[in-house]
Each structure stands twice: as C-alpha cells, then as structure tokens.
C-alpha cells in the first residue's frame, strides 16, 4: 500500500492538519510503511466473524435523564484561549 503526497494532503485536510511540502513527503513514506504493516491482517479469514465492539461484550449502560451537575461555566471556560461574556470566540464565519 503506498500513499501519494496528494493522498496525504487529502487526509490531512480531513483531519484538519496543515502539512508542509517536506512534511508531506516524509508522511507519505511513513504512512505507507504503517499501512504495509496493517495489510498483514488481510491474510486472516474473517468471513464468519462478528466484529468485536467491546472487550467485555456488555451493553451500553443507560442512566436516568436527570440533572446531576451544577453549573460551573466559568471554571470550565477558564482554559479557553479567547472568550467573552461566556462565549468562545472564533474568527468570523459568516460575512
């Protein structure tokens, strides 16, 4: 399996990563090697196998829908890089 630098650029965009030209070449090399490693699993016959969703074979637990937390907006927003009046600020999205 080998990825071109165009593939790498496309994946980087999907992952919202900015990749420089030199980085792109190194990445296409490294990612291709990793995919070669991954390709070893193709040899396994998995025709009748159910994919494993969870190691403990348990169902997702549900909880009652009730309020358990108190409002701590200020504390939780104290790590925000840019905030004002309880809002996270980002560059203008709609002109």
């Amino acid at each position: 399996m080998s990825l071109t630098t165009e593939d790498v650029e496309k994946i980087a965009h999907l992952a919202r990563l900015a990749i420089g030209p030199e980085e792109g070449e190194a990445l296409s090399h490294d990612l291709s090697n990793i995919l070669d490693l991954v390709a070893q699993m193709e040899a396994a016959d998995t025709a009748d196998v159910t994919p494993m969703a969870h190691p403990l074979e348990m169902n997702q637990r549900l909880r009652p829908d009730r309020v358990t937390e108190s409002n701590q907006r200020e504390r939780y927003m104290s790590n925000a890089p840019l905030a004002e009046d309880g809002l996270f600020l980002v560059p203008k999205v709609i002109e």
């Binding site: 990612l31 699993m41 494993m52």
Partner: peptide, 24 residues
Amino acid sequence: MIGTYALSAGFYDAYYIKAQKVRQ
C-alpha cells in the same frame, strides 16, 4: 492521519471492521 484514512469513506470496512474481526 492513519486513523482518518482508515475511517474515511470507502475504507471503513476494509480497515476498521476487518481489524475488529481480527480482534475477535
């Protein structure tokens, strides 16, 4: 990047589902 690729449209069955089967 590897994860994004494995989960991207058209590759999910060949990678993620296959890996979860191998895991089984």
